[in-house]
């Protein structure tokens, strides 16, 4: 990734949020016919330094404390707002992304922008730099909170458990020849791993390993067990059955070598890729098999939270 493509979370939010999401909706306004003297009361009471001038719902100008000070200096306290206000007001539309507001504050150096509806030009709010900061902080808090809940659901389980060594173990029973349900254990395992907060690519590799092993048990054996032992640093996937055993493990590892019966191939499996695929997915793999006794497959997938 090149430098200019990196966006900070804040920049991202300025694109995501709209002006209407952060603006103040309850706008204090003055009528053009009011005097500067009464404007003073409006500013003082509401502790604001400027306010839009509105006639029949439409924005017609903006008047600020600076204009008031000028009038004060020149002794024009009873002039009306319409004479002293700024007529050509820069505005923002309610549906503009916040980044436009940031740009306009930068460009004009104003303290506030009235916000109007794009359609009917009605004044719907007002926005200051402070509102932008508040809006972004609020959104960050919400996002952070959601992220926290999401992560906390289970992924902190290892931190919550007080022990010198923790291993969570999940076992699934696999029936022989039950093709309809074959693969169910692997998909259940994957969901469980994701709930534990295991990163997606690691959960996927563990699930592929489990799926291939599960298929082998369904197709070739009288049934067996799939076990996953999850530690903070690794997942151990084990598949255990009680026969018939693999005659030649090296040969079984060859791509395309398969002893699967025709019905299995018709169902889209038995291509002779299973064990090789397990080996490629796992960081470590070990198979022990005895003819007539059964097979014990162990595959370790290391957990790396960095990615």
């Amino acid at each position: 990734m090149t430098e200019d493509k990196k966006y900070t979370k804040i920049q991202e939010l300025t694109y995501e949020l709209r002006v209407e999401d952060v603006m103040i909706k309850k706008v204090i306004t003055v009528s053009p016919k009011e005097t500067i003297y009464s404007l003073r009361e409006v500013l003082r009471k509401n502790r604001i330094s400027g306010t839009p001038v509105v006639e029949k719902g439409k924005l017609i100008g903006l008047i600020s404390i600076e204009d008031f000070i000028k009038c004060l200096a020149e002794g024009e306290m009873y002039a009306i707002v319409a004479e002293k206000m700024i007529n050509k007001v820069k505005v923002l539309f309610a549906d503009e992304p916040l980044v436009h507001a940031v740009e306009k504050f930068d460009k004009y150096g104003f303290g506030r922008f009235p916000v109007i509806n794009r359609g009917d030009g009605k004044l719907v709010g007002i926005i200051t730099k402070g509102d932008i900061i508040k809006g972004i902080l609020n959104k960050l808090v919400i996002d952070y909170h959601e992220e926290e809940i999401r992560r906390y659901r289970a992924s902190h389980i290892f931190e919550d458990i007080v022990s010198d060594r923790t291993t969570l173990s999940f076992q699934y029973d696999i029936k022989s020849n039950d093709f309809d349900n074959a693969g169910e254990s692997a998909t259940k395992l994957k969901k469980t791993l994701r709930r534990l907060g295991i990163p997606p690519d690691i959960a996927r590799r563990a699930a592929i390993t489990a799926y291939e092993a599960e298929m082998n048990i369904v197709v070739f054996t009288d049934g067996g067990k799939l076990r996953a032992s999850v530690r903070p640093d690794q997942i151990l996937v084990e598949a255990v059955d009680s026969g018939p055993g693999i005659y030649d493990i090296n040969q079984a590892m060859q791509p395309g070598f398969s002893t699967a019966p025709e019905w299995v191939r018709e169902l889209g499996f038995g291509a002779g890729m299973g064990l090789l695929n397990i080996k490629n997915c796992a960081d470590k793999m070990d198979i022990k098999s005895k003819i007539g006794k059964g097979t014990h497959l162990k595959a370790i997938i290391e957990i790396n939270y960095e990615t």
């Binding site: 309809d180 074959a182 693969g183 169910e184 692997a186 998909t187 994957k190 996927r204 889209g268």
Partner: peptide
């Protein structure tokens, strides 16, 4: 059903 399970994994 294996198609869906495979896709899921």
């Amino acid at each position: 059903t294996q198609v869906v399970r495979t896709a899921d994994v």
